[in-house]
Design a protein around this nucleic acid. Structure first.
Lengths: 334, 334
DNA sequence: ACACAAAATGGTAGCGCTGCCAAAAAAAAT
DNA sequence: ATTTTTTTTGGCAGCGCTACCATTTTGTGT
């Protein structure tokens, strides 16, 4: 069952020109405030625009001028607040610069990412923003061939195609391990989600375990759940982990969502934090600051990453890597 | 400081046609799998496409065919997971139907919404999706004049322009009040965020208080914080509310983020839930299911709203209102 | 083999706008 | 008043593609 919306007779620039009694190029110049025209002409054009309810057609404009003001985002997920945060940072800058954001969700699937990047490239965007540095060779090839700017955010451990903005996940993992070791924890476990798909979480995990290993204090046990991260997954994960390894003194979670779940598990079971068990997360979500004991975690500049990447894009800055770093939040769960 | 990315010589359909030794229209037909062509021709065209690395230009295609496959989203916020949820529901359907999502963030500002809708309309989208039914008269006028489909989601209390998908916020407010009354609570308070901007929260509040009033049990006190909703705001809000009105027996929060903050406040202060104080939220976020006591709340079909709206759009269904309802989650905080 | 229907293909006029260039008008200089 | 310079302005050729129509090729039935 389809519906025919009355095809609104679209007003074109030519009609505005005729109504205003000027040439098409004059209308174009006035509307873009580009080139020169008299005040009188401008007023006449604007009056005609107003009167006819003219809405410029950016599709046509983009085709004619060969330079689009679209920025494409291929994001892994919309369930994890991390990516909306990046979009938020970017969208403010883009809107302020008359750019338009388009997006698609890859669901952490590199193959899907490739297909979606191909689809988005068909819109001839000015730039493409991606999460992380891990992409299929096909994706990378398309991106390089596209001639548009590429921004990879939230990871710096690897070789960027063009612009990279964010922080090192493996360094975050190392910092987390060092912090726990410094605080004297020795029987450390890990609760995480699907590391195959979330490669950044995988990098943190590697940095974490390698640091423990180097300190002669290897990871005691780990619980890795299938599926995406969530508080529920974290709660169940910790429950399983502790069932197997009840004598752990600290647990590192793949991120704050998982850690909050673990925190709730401890609350429910009367496990006192941090004396009986320490909990450490990653991301620095707001919720972790409101729990009775603030969550110990690493706060990442997600909004800022999106913002800086967007700024580099609109400024057409040269290829570069921008390390925004991260902040270790001591909190009270360690 | 700007950067000249080497202007990749863009491959056009004409070049593909030449390379494949066929006409342009044949290439176009093959690529869109529309009209008829022989298998042999198809293979030749595909080989040329492959070899040249041709990426169709949808800008040109859209201009020529006068029917875009863009769907524009004007969303109030990316901080509140509610809107990413809607985007998530919609984006799956859109991607499956070769549509492309474009978005902009209104920041709950009707004037900003109007400006952003105008900007997005310039891309001649097939549809525009908006949150709620409250828009400026200018926005409504533009939308009607645009000739494209309009979907308003997450609210049904009002008059839609075209499609409306979601649930009634005032009914949700009423249901919350009835639930608390039925459970015997009589000294009820409210903690909320900026109701001027978030009109849907305002509608819930009205439905809630009117129902209390009608039951001869008016709202005892309310704490309304400036700014957006957050767990932090909920925690502080409850603290202030209880400082003024320590004898409340239940508190209704503007949403789950706020309610979780209130929950944490109680945990930290040793206020036992629900015997000393009952807590009721709104949204049915995942986090509320993982707390030691599951949060009593109303679960809303946010992802589904986006999905259904997108399905109606791609199917070009006639104007209609789809009530997806909501579910009252009894939880354990009431 | 022949007539006729069906399938496959190519040519070309726009889609609505911008960029370039030349022409006209206005302003400044002599 | 006339020339030179500067500011305004309009015309028109595309941007890369699709839609439509005309034409050619292939297939079918007798």
């Amino acid at each position: 069952m389809t519906f025919d919306s009355k095809q609104q007779a679209t007003v074109t620039l030519a009609e505005v020109a005729q109504a205003a009694g000027v040439g098409e190029s004059t209308v174009s110049r006035v509307l873009r405030n580009h080139g020169s025209f008299s005040r009188k002409t401008r007023d006449r054009v604007m009056a005609a625009v107003e009167q006819l309810g003219y809405v410029p057609n950016r599709i046509a404009g983009t085709l004619a001028s060969a330079g689009s003001r679209l920025v494409a985002f291929a994001i892994p997920s919309l369930s994890n607040i991390v990516f909306p945060d990046v979009l938020r940072g970017a969208s403010g800058v883009l809107e302020a610069n008359q750019h338009q954001a388009v997006f698609a969700v890859t669901d952490y699937d590199p193959g899907r990412e490739e297909a979606l990047v191909a689809a988005m490239l068909a819109w001839r965007p000015a730039a493409v923003m991606l999460a992380g540095l891990e992409h299929t060779e096909g994706t990378r090839k398309m991106l390089r061939a596209s001639g548009c700017r590429i921004a990879e955010v939230l990871d710096l451990d690897g070789t960027p195609v063009d612009l990279a903005v964010g922080f090192s996940n493996s360094a975050a993992g190392r910092a987390s391990a060092e912090f726990l070791l410094k605080r004297g924890y020795r029987r450390i476990g890990y609760v995480g989600h699907d590391l195959e798909r979330d490669t950044r979480a995988g990098k943190r995990f590697s940095g974490f375990t390698e640091t423990l290993q180097a300190a002669g204090c290897a990871l005691v046990d780990r619980q890795i759940n299938a599926g995406p991260s969530s508080a529920e997954s974290g709660r169940l994960g910790l429950e399983h982990l502790l069932a197997r390894s009840p004598d752990l003194d600290a647990v590192y979670f793949s991120n704050d969502d998982m850690a909050i779940g673990g925190y709730f598990h401890c609350l429910a079971r009367g496990i006192s934090i941090p004396s009986q068990l320490a909990i450490f997360g990653y991301n620095g979500l707001d919720i972790g600051r409101v729990t009775p004991q603030p969550l110990s975690t690493i706060r990442t500049p997600r909004v800022m990453s999106g913002q800086v990447a967007a700024e580099l894009i609109v400024a057409n800055a040269p290829p570069q890597v921008v390390d925004l770093g991260f902040e270790l939040v001591e909190g009270a769960t360690v």
